[in-house]
């Protein structure tokens, strides 16, 4: 039972990290109906830019290497870079494609992902970097001593951070003027435009916020596995989360993440040994596929009904 709990809790915590990446997809899909294939690349770009700045800032400014000032300055600069990237994407890629079919926008984001990956490596190089956030990835002693259950302090921190982010975004969407405008744009671009909602501004804001989420996700995943090209693969973990949670729901991303995280870990441990192991990569997709058959719009997604 202890082992089961350990696997379950570990899975839930991992699921929150998947949700963090899924959140970026949701934000953009919600506001523009675009499935942003470049979200994984944005996570990579954000983390690499942050680490890149931490490397060059001491040389530029004379500040102490590894210090808090460099960290926060790099964070702000990386955030600014992400917002600039978001606005540039809106201006250069999306604006010329307003009212084009969704598949066109989707294809544009595929191109964008290659571009963003290339720019990131072109500016900062392809070297693999380490990233320390000052939170040790070690088991919480109390849980080990009293319950013999292994829970990582880092994973717990990441989960709390993701929770705060999701909560803030949900409130932002629900109760602010910009949030309402975002939802209006998501429902119908042309209708939103006709009542005076500035589409371009809204899209720029959304891409900027998605850039911020990508930065947070990049820092968390980068601290776990290193800042390297493989960060782009985190997007693969987010897809089944989106299918389960719904492409348009912020809370859905977190619930989907928890379900996917827990189920893939339990499957790997209890089913994996019977089928040769290594099932973690495809099991969530099978689960998502089965889910699609029952509820195509996802747990919290908006049901789409067309009149015929």
């Amino acid at each position: 039972m202890q082992f089961f709990l350990e696997v379950l809790i570990g899975g839930l915590l991992s699921g929150v990290l998947y949700a963090l990446v899924a959140l970026g997809f949701v934000l953009i899909f919600k506001a523009s109906g675009v499935f942003n294939f470049a979200q994984g690349a944005m996570v990579f770009f954000a983390a690499l830019t942050f680490v890149g700045f931490t490397e060059v800032l001491p040389g530029w400014t004379g500040l102490a290497e590894g210090g808090a000032v460099v960290f926060w300055l790099a964070f702000v600069l990386a955030l600014v870079s992400m917002v600039v990237l978001g606005i540039a994407t809106e201006k250069i890629v999306l604006r010329p494609l307003v009212n084009q079919p969704p598949i066109t926008l989707f294809m544009a984001t595929i191109g964008l992902s290659y571009l963003v990956e290339g720019i990131a490596q072109g500016i900062w190089g392809a070297n693999v970097r380490g990233l320390e956030l000052g939170i040790e990835d070690v088991p919480i002693e109390y849980m080990m001593e009293h319950h013999n259950i292994l829970i990582s302090s880092f994973d717990l921190f990441a989960a709390a951070l993701a929770g705060v982010l999701v909560g803030s975004l949900a409130l932002f969407f629900q109760y602010t003027k910009v949030g309402r405008a975002l939802r209006a744009v998501a429902d119908d671009h042309q209708a939103a435009l006709s009542i005076g909602i500035p589409l371009q501004h809204i899209w720029a804001i959304v891409w900027g916020v998605a850039g911020f989420v990508a930065l947070v996700a990049g820092l968390i995943w980068g601290a776990r596995n290193g800042v390297q090209f493989a960060l782009t693969f985190t997007a693969l973990k987010a897809l089944p989360v989106l299918i389960l949670g719904g492409f348009t729901s912020v809370p859905g991303a977190i619930v989907g993440g928890l379900i996917i995280g827990a189920s893939e870990k339990l499957a790997e441990v209890y089913v994996g040994p019977f089928v040769g192991g290594g099932i973690e990569s495809w099991f969530p997709y099978v689960l998502a596929l089965l889910f699609l058959l029952v509820r195509p719009e996802g747990l919290f997604g908006e049901r789409h009904i067309d009149r015929v």
Binding site: G11, F233, G272
Partner: peptide
Amino acid sequence: KIAVAHPGNEQQSQWLQ
């Protein structure tokens, strides 16, 4: 023998085993 699916950026269950 414990397999890790590509790319291997998530190994929680393997290390619990």
